[in-house]
Design a protein around this nucleic acid. Structure first.
Lengths: 147, 147
DNA sequence: AAACTACTTTACGTTTACGTAAACTTTATC
DNA sequence: GATAAAGTTTACGTAAACGTAAAGTAGTTT
């Protein structure tokens, strides 16, 4: 049970910091399926969850098509015949492998950022040294000023 | 010290499973800077490393422009004046935050995949039960056949 | 020398994921 | 009842990241 049952397009746009254009586009691509009151779209909390998943997918480098595929598959899975269920399981395995790859990539990136940062700090320290040599007289003044 | 000093375009294309078109495009966008022998491109091991970084960046959802920015910044950093160094450090912080976000996203996704998989297996188990009820006579035959 | 292979440039085409402008409708407010 | 506020459709535009010919060059094999 969510806090609210329905949402307007601009409510969702604000909450997730996307444009209404994007949301309409996601509907056009059938990733969201709002109902209508007259012309206006009414989004359910299911739509809200899906929007959240869409955006997370994007951050993880998934295309809208990929995300839609997962949504569709999951819907089919719910009215599950055996084939669909098995297919879903294998796809889940594939996605898990993808996530593993991403975790490796991230770990690698973090390590490299560590060494990059270290080199930066070294270089900075070098510069500081040279400054001191050029103007050692001002040192005490700055020390007291740093409080 | 790498195994090899220089690479042809097709060597790199094969090794990293990208098209030569992509590699030329990366050069065009100034992410790679091969030298030439006549017309032909000669890639250094530095280029090779960069290509690897480009592709990892893509898997992590980075645009080529973002990656190029990092490359350029890092190059400037090497001939580091203080401002550049400090800028690099803050950018590294930002990237770290991004990685944290991605790690959260992945963890979330993994949890949801766990529950999704569990539901799939439950549904499958249900289907198996129904099958048994409909044809309990064939059970022993199948059991022995499964060896 | 002809053919093959690997590489090149030029340039137009394509997909994805929206941006942006124009011209309405509906509802709320003054 | 005018006007603003929030929503709508239609439709053309755009940036990114290549794909895909077309046509040429350079070296090497037969």
């Amino acid at each position: 049970m969510d806090i609210k049952q329905t949402y307007s397009i601009s409510e969702l746009a604000k909450e997730f910091d996307v444009t209404t254009r994007s949301i309409r586009f996601y509907e056009d691509q059938e990733l969201l399926r709002p109902t209508r009151r007259g012309q206006a779209r009414i989004f359910s909390s299911k739509d809200r969850v899906r929007l959240k998943l869409i955006l997370r997918g994007k951050r993880m480098g998934f295309s809208l098509a990929e995300t839609k595929e997962l949504f569709d598959l999951w819907d089919e899975t719910l009215s599950g015949n055996e084939k669909q269920l098995l297919k879903m399981l294998t796809i889940l395995e594939n996605k898990r492998a993808q996530l593993e790859q991403q975790k490796n990539d991230i770990a690698q990136a973090e390590m490299e950022m560590d060494t990059a940062e270290a080199r930066c700090r070294e270089a900075l320290a070098e510069l500081q040294k040279k400054k001191k040599q050029q103007a050692p007289a001002k040192e005490e003044a700055r020390q007291t000023a740093e409080n």
